[in-house]
Amino acid sequence: MACRVQKRISLRRKLHILRVLTNSNSAKRTSISNTTILRLYKLKLALETVKRHYENLLAARGEHVNLLNHVKENKDVKIEKVRAGTFMVKVTCEKGSNKLVTILEAFDEMCLNVQQAKVSCEKDFSLEAIVVAEDQTLDLRDVTEALLKAIGKQSGENSQKFDKSCDF
């Protein structure tokens, strides 16, 4: 007899917990179980929606990473004018053959003298240099276009050839 009472008390406790979790107001066992099943079904649908969203995000991330891996254009030229005729040049591009030589040749064509330079070839090729122009009228755009042409990047405009004679 005591065993039946304990089972009944245990069942009532479990039904009370289910009623609280499912926000059910009914005291009937079948109504509570129906509400519980409905609640579990809604949670299952919500979980499937979250899984689909997560898989879509992973696919989009994979496509983005794939696109980034295939992009080869990581060339960057930044030039700041320090004072009249003096420029701070920062060049970053992928490693390749004779990048330094072509950049120095471009400097030579524009009659720019390199005062100080730092070159690194760990992951990419990078150059930081302070250059002084013999021609004080040299513009930032001219230097940028010449360097982009030297490292192989096509600028949208036609680049000028620098056929000036340097006074040494």
Rank of each mutant, 00 (worst) to 15 (best):
F107T: 06
D76S: 13
D108C: 14
F87G: 01
I103V: 15
E63F: 04
K72H: 09
K99W: 05
L68Q: 03
L67A: 06
V91W: 01
L58H: 01
N98S: 14
L67F: 02
E105F: 10
S97C: 14
E105G: 03
L68A: 01
N69P: 02
L57N: 00
R61E: 10
V82M: 06
T92Y: 08
N74L: 14
K90H: 09
F87A: 02
N66W: 05
V101P: 01
H64P: 03
L104F: 12
E94T: 12
K90M: 05
C93P: 00
H53E: 12
H53Q: 11
L67N: 07
K90A: 07
A59I: 00
N66C: 12
E94C: 09
V82P: 01
E94I: 15
K78V: 13
F107W: 07
G85W: 13
N74S: 14
G85F: 11
N69Y: 12
V101N: 08
D76R: 13
E73H: 07
E55T: 11
N98H: 14
A59G: 00
F107A: 11
F107Y: 14
I79G: 03
A60K: 15
L67G: 03
E94A: 11
A84T: 14
C93N: 03
G96Q: 12
E80S: 13
A106T: 08
A59H: 03
K90F: 10
L67Y: 03
V101D: 06
E80F: 11
I79A: 03
V89M: 00
L100S: 11
D76Q: 11
R83D: 08
A60N: 09
G85K: 12
T86M: 10
E55A: 07
L58S: 02
F87L: 04
I103Q: 04
E63I: 06
A60D: 11
N66H: 14
R61T: 07
V65S: 02
G62R: 04
A60C: 04
S97E: 13
L57P: 00
V101E: 10
D76K: 12
H70D: 07
T102D: 13
V65Q: 03
F107E: 03
I79K: 04
T92V: 14
V71P: 02
D108R: 15
T86K: 15
L57A: 00
H64V: 07
Y54L: 14
H64G: 05
I79N: 05
N69F: 05
N66P: 01
F107G: 06
H64E: 05
H70S: 11
G62M: 01
K99Y: 08
K72Y: 05
E63M: 07
H53V: 04
L100T: 07
N74G: 06
V77I: 15
T92G: 04
R83F: 05
N69W: 09
K99E: 13
E55C: 06
T92R: 10
L104Y: 15
I103T: 04
